[in-house]
Nucleic acid binder design. Structure first.
Length: 585
RNA sequence: GGGCAUGUAGCUCAGUGGAUAGAGCAUCAGAUUCCGGUUCUGAGGGUCGGGGGUUCGAAUCCCUCCAUGCUCGCCA
């Protein structure tokens, strides 16, 4: 089933071709939702853009297009306004028929893609032997949401966790532990993760100021990379421990990921360098093997290199990213590779992509996308950190959100004289707390920095998770109150649109499909949040104006259907954001 | 110094070529015999950072300047 917008586009393409007497020339009808409800539901701006090309006044072109338009089933007669806008208003009967159709569809009219493609979403990517902190929050939440949307559209999605489990840092840590706490290298869980993190910090400090230790660390890396058993064993212990810790967070967030860390690509690194050499791109400079970049310069204005092999023979993250890119194209056969990392890495990816392209590794049908996002800032507008100046642990941050909602809920229950079990309150607080953190992040355009505020994200008013979840729970309570079984309204139940608020709600319900398609293309989850927020607003307006349970027979059924469709749309939309719904809260 | 991003209402932000620039919060004023008032209606509040340009039309594209942030050869 096509979205309404697509349906209209097709009709316009036909009309434009006839009006201009062109051979099916691909003219974009510039069909968009009306900028203002007073102009109707959709508008086409195509006449103005054609004026110069065709050499006729835009209004005349608009008239000619309108004459060839065959929209009688969908719209009231189109009108032409201003310089040549073509305004369309959908017919209630058409809206009713569309609603009746989607209400019988589990996907609510959202089609699956006709050409499923393998897509990779690379997100989260914490480092082994470190705790997940606030810096991993956005990648994890945004990545999961994008993966869910692609999956729902029927794409073949690989969710990859490119964990930092390799490289210099490991040599450093193992060398340090060997000296200070050797049991950690041979015994499972000899240290808890917090201590491990502390050791890591000390190791880094030592590494930065002690050349002899740097050499020791380097030798550890060599041992590890050449597969010395004792080193591999220690490395495995550390990885396993971290993995269990990460898993707790992913479980709390309900995020699924396949781990494929940097170490996975280790055997493929030499070939990357060799092949760059073969391609004639490799240059040795100051002992390092690199590719000089186009369009990137250093402070002196000289071309900047991308180093793929260090002067000590070791590889770095650019090499790993290049190897991963090749593997994903050749072995995974991915057609769309999406990296969810902070905006600070934009130039790194631009550089890696450039080198891969120049080496001829990127076929034309493969799309590489870096999806950047801004920093998480505290309410003072500076980077969030603990009093000690360290980044906040993700676990603490999530638990704080849950605890704060719990406190609010307890107080609210007392105020309303509601008796709820401890279990209920714990479950609701967990769902709302986590959802609030997710929604706050997803609801704004990811490219800018974002100010993290518990008070704002947990507010029961405004564009927040609690508000959305409440709207859902409120609808469900109508069903309970009226003892309605929404699944048994029956196939003969029909939507009838009379009140203005019913029409507005209906039109919005029918835009789910185009909203999801837009997010699939632009990878901007805030558009879906915006859609859902507007949906709940329109529902509230309808609900305020139109009694449901007290209405009489066919109207009552119709309104129940609108309630049910709204609830199902909220549930589906929130699920795509990674947010579950609550029947009661 | 170079690159990239950001700059829109008091605050947090939508809006990447279309009509009179929108929403939430906050502020103020109203409604309610109510199916969960966590509601609804309305008001005030903007030289879209400044300036120039392209266009029938610019918050949106180009140039320039200003402010803030991130980043710039062997960490990831």
């Amino acid at each position: 089933m096509n979205s309404i917008q697509e349906e209209l586009k097709l009709k316009f393409q036909v009309a434009i071709a006839q009006a201009l007497d062109t051979e099916g020339a691909e003219t974009d009808p510039m069909l968009v939702p009306a900028s203002n409800p007073q102009f109707g539901d959709y508008q086409s701006n195509v006449a103005m853009s054609l004026a110069k090309k065709v050499g006729k006044p835009p209004r005349a072109i608009a008239e000619s297009i309108v004459q060839h338009l065959d929209l009688a089933d969908l719209c009231e007669p189109p009108t032409i306004a201003g310089p040549g806008f073509i305004n369309l208003t959908l017919k209630p009967a058409y809206l009713e028929a569309q609603l009746n159709a989607i209400s019988r569809d589990d996907r609510l009219g959202v089609a699956t893609t006709k050409h499923p493609l393998r897509a990779i979403v690379d997100f989260s990517s914490p480092n082994i032997a470190k705790e997940m902190h606030v810096g991993h929050l956005r990648s994890t939440i945004i990545g999961d949401c994008i993966a869910r949307i692609l999956e729902f559209r029927g794409q073949d999605v690989l969710r990859l966790n490119h964990v930092g489990d390799w490289g210099t840092q490991f040599g450093m840590l193992i060398a340090y532990l060997r000296e200070k706490y050797p049991e950690a290298l041979t015994t499972r869980d000899a240290l808890d993760l917090g201590d491990l993190v502390e050791f890591y910090r000390q190791a880094k400090k030592r590494f930065d100021g002690d050349p002899a230790f740097q050499e020791t660390a380097r030798l550890e890396v060599v041992k590890l990379q050449s597969g010395v058993e004792e080193s591999r064993f220690a490395w495995n212990l550390l990885c396993e421990q971290s993995r269990r810790e990460f898993q707790q967070i992913y479980q709390l967030l309900d995020v699924r990921l396949d781990e494929r860390g940097e170490s996975f690509y280790n055997p493929l690194l030499p070939a990357v360098v060799e092949d760059l050499d073969q391609a004639g791109l490799l240059v040795e400079d100051a002992g390092a093997k690199c590719v000089f970049l186009e369009g990137f310069t250093n402070k002196a204005g000289e071309p900047l290199p991308l180093i793929v092999q260090k002067s000590d023979g070791g590889y770095n993250y650019a090499t790993t990213d290049l190897a991963a890119l090749r593997y994903r194209i050749q072995e995974d056969e991915a057609k769309r590779i999406i990296y969810i990392t902070d905006a600070g890495q934009a130039s790194h990816f631009a550089q890696v992509f450039q080198v891969a392209r120049r080496a001829g590794w990127i076929p034309d049908d493969v799309e590489l996308v870096h999806v950047p996002f801004g920093l998480v800032l505290g309410e003072d507008g500076r980077k969030v950190s603990t009093r000690a100046g360290e980044s906040v642990r993700l676990k603490d941050l999530l638990e704080e959100a849950i605890a704060r909602f719990r406190a609010y809920l307890e107080a609210k229950c007392i105020e309303d004289q509601r008796e709820e079990t401890a279990e209920f309150k714990a479950e609701v607080s967990k769902v709302v707390g986590i959802s609030a953190v997710k929604y706050a992040d997803l609801s704004q355009n990811r490219t800018s920095n974002y100010i993290f505020s518990y008070d704002k994200m947990l507010a029961p008013l405004g564009n927040t998770a609690p508000y959305m979840l409440y709207a859902y729970a409120r609808i469900r309570s109508i069903g309970r109150k009226g003892q309605i079984d929404f699944d048994r309204l029956g196939n003969e139940a029909k939507v009838l649109l009379q009140d203005e608020t019913e029409l507005n709600l209906a039109k919005h319900l029918l835009q789910l499909s185009e909203t999801i398609n837009a997010v699939e293309t632009d990878l901007l989850p805030n558009r879906l949040c915006q859609y859902l927020f507007e949906l709940s607003q329109k529902f509230n307006q309808f609900y305020d104006r139109c009694p449901v349970l007290e209405a009489e027979a066919p109207v009552k059924t119709s309104r129940l259907l609108l309630c049910d469709l709204t609830a199902r749309t909220l549930k589906l939309g929130l699920a795509l954001l990674g947010i579950p719904v609550l029947e009661r809260m």
